[in-house]
């Protein structure tokens, strides 16, 4: 008789992506996150969309171990962030591109991060070229434009060549050329099989990048669906709505939309 070893083994494997499990966060009496559950599977770009203050950044900060949840948990490839060995090689993150000491040069910033993460220093210069900061590498970050800081932040996220990426509003401040660059980068990361979570408060930015959309509104998941099913689910299927229309419909009447 054949022993069903394969399913048994599979159930023991850690989940490769990023899993938000019943996440709740209270600040005093304010409920910032209320039972937030969604996953970011490998090989997809998952968009986390919601108005300002809806809980996008808070969920990401909890995922990265910077804030502790009131209930629930976030698993990075099956583990809590603080239990990860060499975390920068497991999950890369861009939270706030302006959060760099202005006195450091872009190159120094990546060099200390590489040292802290146990990453080869040679990767720093290659990455600076890749994100288009080759000529600005030795200038101080204080003199960078917001778009340049975003590029530096993306480089910092990619430093450890991680299979999972968390990018909070990475397109803020990018010029049109930067937008094109980022869209191509995001698609490449997906095609390489990485799990990518990108947040935005502008649905339009995510068109053409995101495979799945998780809409968060007032700390709750208002929708969690593939792009295709979100667009199909429109009541008037005759004229295809834009993502923007769908998003506005979801946040104004927060009913659950499931794939």
């Amino acid at each position: 008789m054949a022993v069903p070893t394969v399913p048994a083994m599979r159930s023991n494997l850690p989940q490769p992506g990023l899993t938000f499990e019943a996440l709740t966060k209270r600040f005093g009496t304010v409920v910032a996150l209320d039972d937030v559950t969604f996953t970011v599977p490998p090989g997809t770009v998952t968009a986390l969309v919601g108005p300002n203050g809806s809980g996008k950044t808070t969920s990401m900060r909890i995922a990265l171990g910077l804030a502790s949840p009131s209930a629930g948990r976030v698993l990075v490839a099956g583990q809590l962030y603080r239990h990860l060995d060499a975390p920068l090689t497991r999950i890369g993150s861009l939270l706030d591109a302006t959060a760099v000491n202005p006195g450091l040069t872009g190159r120094t910033h990546l060099r200390w991060l590489a040292a802290a993460g146990g990453i080869r220093a040679a990767r720093v210069d290659a990455l600076l070229e890749q994100v288009g900061l080759g000529t600005a590498a030795r200038r101080r970050v204080g003199g960078y434009s917001l778009g340049m800081k975003q590029r530096l932040g993306v480089a910092a996220a990619l430093l450890g060549d991680p299979p999972i990426l968390i990018l909070d509003e990475p397109m803020n401040g990018l010029d049109p050329e930067g937008m094109v660059w980022f869209r191509r980068l995001a698609r490449n990361l997906r095609d390489e099989g990485r799990a990518v979570l990108v947040s935005s408060h502008l649905m339009r930015e995510l068109e053409g990048i995101a495979d799945r959309v998780v809409v968060i509104h007032r700390g709750r998941i208002a929708a969690d669906a593939s792009i295709a099913s979100l667009l199909m689910g429109s009541p008037d299927a005759a004229d295809r709505p834009s993502l923007e229309d769908v998003y506005l419909r979801v946040v104004t009447s927060p009913e659950e939309v499931r794939p």
Binding site: L64, L95, A99, G103
Partner: peptide
């Protein structure tokens, strides 16, 4: 203090969760 002010302390603690 410089890192608390700029917010870079988050990156430091992300790289070194301990």
């Amino acid at each position: 203090g410089n890192e608390e002010r700029s917010g870079m302390i988050s990156t430091s603690y992300t790289a070194t969760p301990r």
